[in-house]
């Protein structure tokens, strides 16, 4: 009857979103008067999940799952969920969890709601609030099936530490129905913070005039330990790689801080970044629509402001280190 939460790790190390998901599961379990079971695949130091509210951890260690494979992961999680008799299964909204979730929904015959932003508004009937229309609205949706599947939006639910510990139980999974897939190649820029994981994102638009000026964005990102991003035309013109395109048709951003430099704030751009908690705009046009959607703004020339910001932040960081 417990709430089951899938906690994702990369190279064995839990992601912050995994702790968010356990905290969410704990909040949910409290309102359902039940316990939290976490399931995790090839992770290290799994007992730490107890600190966030897991009562039990199902620890799957399996060589066949060394590389992420959606169908195999879905099967493993399904096995854990069935074994626990879980009625609610909670996932995060990382790229891999979003890949697994629809497969899991069919395996468990579970109604599925993604981008969930808060605990259920009601548990009987079971109603959750999620972000829809690319952050332009919220929906309240009833899940009518016996088993329910929820994907929690990134940064929507705070990590909460509790006084608790988890018992760890290992599970051998059979993986009977796996398709033949060969992962031929993985290319990853390991030295860079990704937009998906970053607490801070620094983003540049057409106002930067050309790719030769991107050192401003990169240097600012470096001082802040931030990921770099860009508006759509910037990636369409080839100034920056496509992976950096954020917005409604690019990557979503849900960071703590989003700094937009030389970006006008078109509706499609705003839709994709508005889930960020604090937004700062630097733009020389006081009429730029982004000012209406931002928390803080400086009206001025990016070529003057950004270098000064980089220098002063360096000094600030040195002082506060």
């Amino acid at each position: 009857m417990s709430v089951l939460v899938y906690t994702e790790s990369e190279e064995g190390v839990f992601k912050k979103t995994a702790f968010e998901a356990v905290s969410y599961a704990k909040g949910l379990a409290d309102s359902l008067n039940t316990t939290v079971t976490a399931v995790t695949i090839n992770s290290k130091d799994v007992a730490q999940l107890g600190k966030y509210g897991a009562n039990k951890v199902i620890d799957i260690q399996n060589d066949a799952l060394q590389k992420f494979r959606a169908d195999a992961y879905a099967e493993a999680i399904t096995e854990a969920a069935k074994k626990e008799g879980a009625k609610v299964v909670v996932l995060t909204s990382t790229t891999n969890s979003k890949y697994v979730a629809p497969l899991l929904a069919v395996d468990l015959d579970a109604g599925f709601v993604s981008n969930v932003v808060d605990l259920p508004t009601s548990t009987k009937p079971f109603v959750v609030k999620s972000s829809v229309f690319s952050n332009k609205a919220f929906a309240e949706t009833e899940i009518k099936t016996d088993v329910k599947l929820i994907a929690v939006a990134k940064n929507a639910y705070q990590v909460k530490e509790v006084d608790g510990s988890a018992e760890v139980e290992s599970l051998d999974v059979s993986l009977a129905n796996i398709k033949d897939v060969e992962v031929a190649d993985i290319e990853k820029s390991t030295d860079k913070v990704t937009i998906a994981d970053a607490e801070i994102v620094v983003s540049g638009g057409r106002g930067l005039k050309g790719p030769e000026n991107w050192h401003l964005i990169e240097d600012l990102a470096e001082v802040l330990g931030a990921a770099t991003a860009c508006s759509k035309p910037v990636s369409d013109m080839g100034w920056r790689p496509h992976e950096e395109h954020v917005g409604q048709t690019g990557k979503p951003v849900a960071s703590n801080l989003y700094i937009a430099i030389g970006i006008s704030g078109a509706i499609q751009h705003l839709a994709g970044v508005s889930a960020s908690k604090v937004k700062v705009v630097i733009n020389n046009d006081p009429e730029a629509p982004f000012f209406k959607a931002a928390d803080y703004g400086i009206v001025g020339d990016a070529f003057e402001i950004v270098p000064e910001l980089i220098e002063k932040l360096k000094a600030f960081k040195a002082e506060n280190a």
Binding site: E182, I186, E187, T190
Partner: peptide
């Protein structure tokens, strides 16, 4: 994938 690409 988060932070890169994968060929399958």
């Amino acid at each position: 994938i988060d932070g890169g690409t994968e060929t399958i």
